[in-house]
Amino acid sequence: MSKILILAQHDGNKINQGTAKAITAAQQIENHSIDVIIFADDIDSIANKAAQLAHVNTVHAIKTSNENWKLSAGITGKFAELAEGYSHIFGPSTTFGKDVMPCVAALLGQNQISDVMQVIDANTFKRPIYAGNAIITVNSPHNKIVATIRTASFKTADMQSGSATIENHNIDNPQSDTKFISLQTGNQERPDLQTAAKVISGGRGVGSEENFEIIYELADKIGAATGASRAAVDAGYVPNEMQVGQTGKIIAPDLYMAFGISGAIQHLTGIKDAGTIVAINKDSDAPIFEVSDIGLVGDLFKIVPELMEKL
């Protein structure tokens, strides 16, 4: 029997879908039982939401003082303590999970299996290395497996139909060497880039912050999230949270439309799992056309308005 503990990520109001994707990965292990661990200061309401995650038996709900739940330092000690009774400890491969999980692995004396993209069996997993240019099969012969689950590789498990038991815990000695100061977030009205079914993205070819307006308009027209290449973020056209690729977000929408993105390998890594990739670029030799399902060579400033009209 594999006893699996999954770290729930949330923003205080909603459970992050990465959590439900980690549950999907956990379900692919034979003969499993799945529990969730969640930390918050206002724990009761969010723990109730975690209890609605399908396939979960128990939610360990841990109340933290103030904003400690947002910080790796505030949660890893208790997390590792509760992880003692489990064979598998999973977290989403989001920036939160990537921050927290290696600490838990270290406390448990294990290496972590990062960015699991496929479950082979209870001890064997596939994960990408070299920015996705190679895939390795990793086996852990040990009795505790700590892993982060690549969110683009797994479907979201149902987040409504569960009825897990909630078990409450406290943290006795809260830490104070790390303080949360602020979180600056961008646009909240468009769909979330990480989980959106459609994504419209722009690159250096868009040319300026002002020019990105046409990307946003097109996205709003078809209800898409917006993304960008690293070049566009570095140039200051858009904020960092829009970056798609190896060091940004790795996404798997049904439709990905790239405007003025040449397609550096690091960007392509972030979109490989997309259903349909559409590339629009004025350079017919742009590497993005090597991975696109539909390519159109042309001037995005003519093509976007035409799409606005015809979609």
């Binding site: 290496n111 299996i113 064997t124 990408p128 996705g132 240019n133 190679a134 895939i135 390795i136 099969t137 990793v138 086996n139 852990s140 012969p141 490989k272 990739i277 056309f289 991975v291 696109s292 399902d293 539909i294 390519g295 159109l296 060579v297």
Partner: peptide, 18 residues
């Protein structure tokens, strides 16, 4: 951890130009 196998990623199917 034991690394058992290295593989190349599955290539995407060739797309079309419109």
């Amino acid at each position: 951890l034991d690394v058992q196998l290295f593989e190349s990623p599955m290539p995407r199917e060739k797309g079309v130009m419109v």
